[in-house]
């Protein structure tokens, strides 16, 4: 089954048909969501009542579009704030980890490496509840000891950021390590020969080389943070990020305004995803 070995025509065509059907299956839900963002009906379902822009720009209830729907706009801002912190923190820690694992040999390195990979195989909801239980018990202990309130350790944005950071850092570490491994250390040695300090060589030679990977990791972190649901759901407080807000709407049944949000999300995530691929090359 390779191009140089001839296969019978029916086999070739049925294989192609299968692959075509597969891609239809992949595209179907996304295309459906997008198309119904323009349906002139208050439910995201058939029959098709004509084309409208109301679900983007509408101002009168029940036809309030995304750009005038306060709770959704607020949720987008919340998600943005969370994504900003998660992405910044995970890139910083990920870069340190990459230097540690690529450049240093030490006792227990393999053990720490496996431990670092674990967040990939812990279900997100478990990461969420374990952090919830742990931070609450710290908050309880601190409150009992000091008599003060420690609201930061109760469900809320800080915990959401920490929860997402706890597993997104693994991805950032892997992306940045992959690029650091390709770095030719003789470049750094040359800088040292030319009189650079150790830190100066890293800052002026190694970090610029790593920069595309760090940016790619940041973009991937923003994407993962924006779309994370399981971990966030367990740690969320009063200001919900976008996915949790959308989930609450979806359970109750909503107008096609959700389709409009989804359409925007699809466009933005596809663009960010492509950007991360270009950067990783």
């Amino acid at each position: 089954m390779i191009t140089t070995i001839p296969q019978s025509a029916p086999f070739k065509w049925s294989y192609r048909l299968y692959v075509t059907l597969f891609f239809l299956y992949l595209a179907l839900p996304l295309v459906t969501v997008c198309v119904f963002a323009f349906n002139d009906s208050v439910f995201p379902s058939l029959p098709w009542d004509g084309f409208t822009w109301d679900w983007f720009f509408g101002t009168e209830a029940p036809r309030i579009g995304v750009f005038h729907e306060r709770p959704i706009l607020r949720a987008i801002v919340t998600s943005g704030v969370v994504a900003f912190w998660v992405s910044g923190l995970s890139v910083i820690v990920g870069t340190c980890n990459a230097f540690l694992f690529v450049r240093h040999d030490f006792a227990g390195k393999n053990f720490l490496y496996i431990l670092m990979l674990l967040p990939l195989i812990i279900p997100g909801i478990i990461l969420g509840i374990s952090i919830l239980v742990f931070s609450s018990s710290i908050a309880n202990a601190l409150e009992e000891a000091t008599g003060l309130w420690f609201d930061g350790l109760r469900p809320g944005l800080l915990l959401v950021i920490l929860g997402q950071f706890s597993f997104i850092t693994t991805f950032a570490t892997l992306v940045i390590s992959a690029r650091l491994q390709k770095f030719d250390t003789s470049l750094e040695e040359a800088a040292l020969n030319l009189g650079a300090t150790k830190w100066g060589a890293i800052r002026q030679v190694t970090l610029p080389f790593l920069f595309p990977a760090m940016l790619a990791a940041a973009v991937v972190a923003v994407l993962m943070s924006f779309e994370n649901f399981n971990t966030t759901l367990m740690l969320v407080g009063s200001d919900a990020p976008l996915t949790v807000t959308m989930f609450d709407r979806l359970k109750l049944g909503s107008t096609p305004v959700l389709n409009a949000v989804s359409l925007l999300l699809i466009i933005v995530s596809a663009l960010l995803g492509l950007l991360s691929l270009v950067l990783k090359r």
């Binding site: 839900p29 996304l30 969501v33 379902s45 979806l250 995530s269």
Partner: peptide, 22 residues
Amino acid sequence: FLMCLIPFWVSELVRTFGWMIL
């Protein structure tokens, strides 16, 4: 390959919503 990746970049919530409408 890119066509395979795009649905993965989109939030799981949006994908599930698509199946609900279908």
